[in-house]
């Protein structure tokens, strides 16, 4: 028990710094180091935040599914809270994708939004996240609801390949990343690293706040029982 605490304390103390450094490096690379893309110009720089956000949104979904499975298997509260925190974060990053996408699309495609498969996919993903988060809000915080949410999380992941396939067949114009200059690849790599750090740090913070909330509730009940 003790080693676990010191281990997570260590993570807690160095993760914020790592995130700061990585983020500063990412910003510097995006704005100072990487050259303009030939055709699209300055606007293309948003891509270095857009793409990692999308990956984090997917990462969140898979954490939700994994934690949900673990919760149904063993019924541990920590797995349930991990699923919940990851879903909330996934929704945040999904929102970032949906915000940065149109910012780029407007000057390049001339429209804010098109029903291109990846955009549509992200929107559907966002909606599933929203349903998951709202289910937990509306239904209260009980073991039963935790199981409902876990089932929903797993069903969502099972559905993703089908959604992707059907939307893909439906239509498509999203730019494919073909050949990237080495500078661009490096910048993307650093940005992704920075986003992983941000994701991990936020996840830690959210998890800790959820655990603290549990503790507060237990203390309150203890107080009421003792009176």
């Amino acid at each position: 028990m003790k080693t676990v605490t010191t281990h997570s304390d260590l993570v807690d103390s160095f993760l914020p710094w790592l995130t700061c450094v990585a983020m500063l490096a990412a910003l510097a690379m995006v704005f100072l180091y990487v050259p303009n893309e030939r055709v699209q110009g300055e606007v293309q720089r948003i891509f270095y935040f857009h793409l990692p956000s999308a990956w984090m949104a997917f990462l969140g979904f898979f954490i939700v599914a994994g934690a949900s499975g673990a919760f149904l298997w063993q019924g541990k509260r920590s797995a349930d809270l991990l699923a919940r925190a990851a879903a909330e974060l996934g929704m945040v990053f999904c929102s970032l994708v949906l915000l940065t996408g149109p910012l780029w699309a407007r000057p390049i495609w001339g429209v804010w939004w098109t029903w291109d498969p990846r955009l549509t996919m992200t929107l559907v993903l966002w909606l599933i996240y929203a349903a998951y988060v709202l289910l937990r809000v509306f239904a209260g915080d009980t073991e039963t609801v935790a199981r409902y949410a876990a089932v929903l999380g797993i069903v969502g992941v099972i559905d993703i390949p089908l959604i992707y396939l059907s939307i893909r067949l439906w239509r498509g114009i999203h730019p494919k990343v073909e050949q990237m200059a080495p500078e661009m690849a490096w910048t993307l790599l650093v940005c992704t690293g920075a986003f992983v750090c941000v994701f991990a740090w936020l996840l830690r913070l959210r998890l800790r706040s959820l655990h603290l909330r549990d503790e507060i509730r237990a203390l309150r009940q203890h107080l009421v029982a003792a009176s």
Partner: peptide
């Protein structure tokens, strides 16, 4: 089965079901 045992089940059901029904 999930929605019916929550508050606001009329809202929760379409919220859950419709995005999953996309394919």
């Amino acid at each position: 089965a999930i929605a019916v045992r929550t508050r606001a089940r009329e809202i929760i059901l379409p919220l859950m079901l419709l995005p999953l029904l996309v394919p």
